[in-house]
Design a protein around this nucleic acid. Sequence first.
DNA 1: CCAATTTTTGTTAGCGTTAACAGAGACGCC
DNA 2: GGCGTCTCTGTTAACGCTAACAAAAATTGG
Lengths: 335, 335
Amino acid sequence: MAVHGPAMTDVARLAGVSHQTVSRVLNGHPNVREQTRLRVRAAIAELGYRPNGAARALVTGRSQVIGVVAQNTTLYGPASLLAALEQTAAEEGFAVSVGSVRNLDHRSISAAVERHLSHRVAGIVVIAPVESAGEALERLPKDVPLVTVDGDPSRPVPLVTVDQVAGARAATQHLLDAGHRTVWHVSGPTDWFDSVGRIDGWRQALLAAGLDPPPPMPGDWSAASGYRCGQMLARMPEVTAVFTANDHLALGVLRALHEFGRRVPHEISVVGFDDVPEAAYFIPPLTTVRPDFDAVARASLQMLLSQIESGTGGALRQTIAPALVVRESVAPPRR
Amino acid sequence: MAVHGPAMTDVARLAGVSHQTVSRVLNGHPNVREQTRLRVRAAIAELGYRPNGAARALVTGRSQVIGVVAQNTTLYGPASLLAALEQTAAEEGFAVSVGSVRNLDHRSISAAVERHLSHRVAGIVVIAPVESAGEALERLPKDVPLVTVDGDPSRPVPLVTVDQVAGARAATQHLLDAGHRTVWHVSGPTDWFDSVGRIDGWRQALLAAGLDPPPPMPGDWSAASGYRCGQMLARMPEVTAVFTANDHLALGVLRALHEFGRRVPHEISVVGFDDVPEAAYFIPPLTTVRPDFDAVARASLQMLLSQIESGTGGALRQTIAPALVVRESVAPPRR
DNA sequence: CCAATTTTTGTTAGCGTTAACAGAGACGCC
DNA sequence: GGCGTCTCTGTTAACGCTAACAAAAATTGG
């Protein structure tokens, strides 16, 4: 096996030029006669020649590959982000290499980054939603283009984030506007920046309305933990409105409320976050907040590409505003 | 920027050996004196040396990268598979490069494969659940290790599949065992092998029980299409049991039945397929079929690796049996 | 203890590409 | 018409690694 395909010299011989001219044609160098260019193109097509990325990477020092480090690509958010990233990268002629990681601790992150580095990726996107990830990033070689997504806002690293605070504020305000006296919150794990931001936004909206935020109930993004929180919420007669940190938590809450015979939205209103494709088919259809993953992917890739091209490692940051999606899980409180 | 890291010769100089000895240590060659090995290791550590994958790929003709071609990595199945694949590959020292594809037609698939090929990946895993993908695969260079997942069983290509037929049969039989006189089916898109297999299994179970299968209702995997089918089902008084081709379809059906006031499982029983993490928190908790994505990933990677190592392109195939997960969405029919 | 082996190390030559420079025509200008 | 200036093309030398061979050192057997 391994009948290696034709190389540049083979194309050159067939076209009657030097391999360097072939290289020029391939890289769109301006100073090539039109006629020559066509001959070379024809030879490339005839031989089915495909440039060798490894050789190119060796000589230029970087490949056309972007490394992505993410924790759990099964979760809806990361999966969507990854898909969008891949799509965008493909359009720019880049491949995406995933390095998923079980835990977001120093060691795991560093290992994943190392793996990417040894393949000489052109740049790295780290989906780093927790504290410990930021620390691992600080020790990274400074000369590799890097963008973090949903990372630590307080670190001087190029960063793209969904505006969690604004999203949570909108969700909470929506419940307040419906007439609720206060809003309870089922949060994500508190070491995630996403969670912190969403808690913040929720609290801000409450405070702005002159309300005293009740204690947030911590979940772990899963429907299971949402269910547990929902069981508690269902037993508290004063609860009329709940904002959950994501849609899966909301699903669990919905199910618990249903079991306790508390009707949504008539007795209790619920708002989620993420707008998973199924949210419109929950019982009842879930009002939620939709982050624009495509926009996040586009922004981060653009940021990365500009670093790769310019060579400068700017510490830009960009925030993507999410949108409230109103469905049927919110109603005015009964009086 | 681009302060290139140390190369093998730098390590060699520091350790007082030739670069080739460093190479031997790195590749675990047996004939190196223990003392030398340690000196080299120390030098590697001191310099923070990292081997250059591109150079290695250039000289050996293949990289430590596996290319994965998949359609929609946002769907639960493909996403889980991809994550599992990545995990397994990492354990074997391979990176995974994703090439997702909007449509599974010849052109898109070929383009994705081409991209992988030009990066000289060591092998390719194609998650090819539809007909047209199989055709694109036939024209591939024969010398590149290849494994298809959930692809066309009738093609002579190494293949790993979930046993869709057995899973669907188990689901249908479970409903029959509960006492239902027949079972309706909301299917996936009929150009997916997964769908075909699940339809087959459902039909087999019915036929084996001496029953005449009603016409399957075609969906597209989404909750939205499940909802539409559910609306029809809800209007048909004779329907007491439904098997849906995946859990999201089931969610849509559940919601439609709920809207029409038809209670699950008291009036109608529902079984899904996939066991998404949320299925246990549907209303009611969904009985479903769980494919073992980890096992699929492990099997396909192992198959690929053995091709890479041996150089022979065997046309093996392996089938992973799924498991029925019983929850609360099934009950005997009312009489 | 010397020749024959085996183990360990070094030397050289690519892999396929791009970068840097050099050469060959074509063209315009004084 | 000669000379500088373009435009186009070719030559050579890396990039960092492994494979193949060659040499040196250590080990064995009689």
